[in-house]
Design a protein around this nucleic acid. Structure first.
Lengths: 148, 148
DNA sequence: TCTACAATTGCAAATAATTCTTATTTAGGG
DNA sequence: CCCTAAATAAGAATTATTTGCAATTGTAGA
């Protein structure tokens, strides 16, 4: 199940870029590959770290610029935090809830059925036109609970 | 209803600070007054702006330091955003959902009944120990919708 | 295949929000 | 009223991100 997700996401991202007339540079493709493949939600730092192996001279700015572009095309979801660096989800580029481990900073995507009713409730009650949302739970993951 | 909330929150904050052995400087009390009184969710910038009238020489760092302190005592809720400045809620210092207007940056506190079930659902499903959460909706508020 | 040129890259400097450093001032107990 | 630890003002430092610019490189068309 992981492989097809990776392949589909990779193709979709490349396709979108091509369709919008963007060049497919090796750096760009490598970034897309990482975004499509990562189950954890990598930061720019992590992506940059991986890229340096293949592109010793690559610049962080290139990573930032490309992620910005891909995000503007709706192909990656940015999960930004006030204090720290943003994390990115290229596998599910649409809004969805997260759980963040406060010890190891792992980010997991939970299933959450109770969610769908909520947008409607909010719209009805507030009069806002809801465009997107952000739902994060913070806690301690099973592994970190073990380690005490 | 607004006045009692203000008074209660103000007293509670001062009380907590005193109990923990912190000094009650005029700057600190003024910051607390603003936090307890503000219905909008002010930023450091806004708080600093208000303070400058009474304390022309006040430093931004003082505002930051005090809010950090008050937050560490659980008497104010920080709502931080990746790109911009944090906003603060001294009236409801516990986690609760927000709606943010993408045009005017107003932040409103909605009622949201469907929420309570969710923490349980998350705990059961993920095995995380949930410590807090953050739920933000982003959209366009009724006033900004009018203005088109 | 070759060319032209806009898009992209790498680098370094610029930002923006926040935190830290240091010398000075001050609240509050004795 | 005095003392001491805590708090302040000012500005430098930090962290994540963005931007300006000159050099490079995909890629559409000859």
């Amino acid at each position: 199940m992981a492989a097809p997700v990776y392949r589909d996401r990779y193709k979709s991202m490349v396709e979108t870029l091509k369709r919008q007339g963007h060049k497919l540079t090796p750096q760009r493709l490598a970034i897309i590959r990482i975004l499509a493949a990562s189950e954890g939600h990598p930061s720019v730092e992590e992506i940059y770290g991986q890229l340096k192996r293949k592109f010793p001279g690559i610049s962080q700015a290139t990573v930032y610029r490309n992620i910005m572009l891909i995000k503007s095309l709706g192909e990656v979801l940015e999960i930004g935090f006030a204090g720290g660096s943003s994390r990115y989800d290229g596998r599910r580029p649409y809004p969805h809830p997260h759980i963040v481990c406060l010890k190891c900073n792992k980010i997991v995507d939970p299933e959450l059925d109770t969610l769908h009713d909520m947008t409607k409730e909010i719209t009805d009650e507030s009069g806002f036109e809801i465009i997107t949302y952000r739902l994060d739970f913070f806690g301690v993951c099973p592994e970190c609970r073990e380690k005490k």
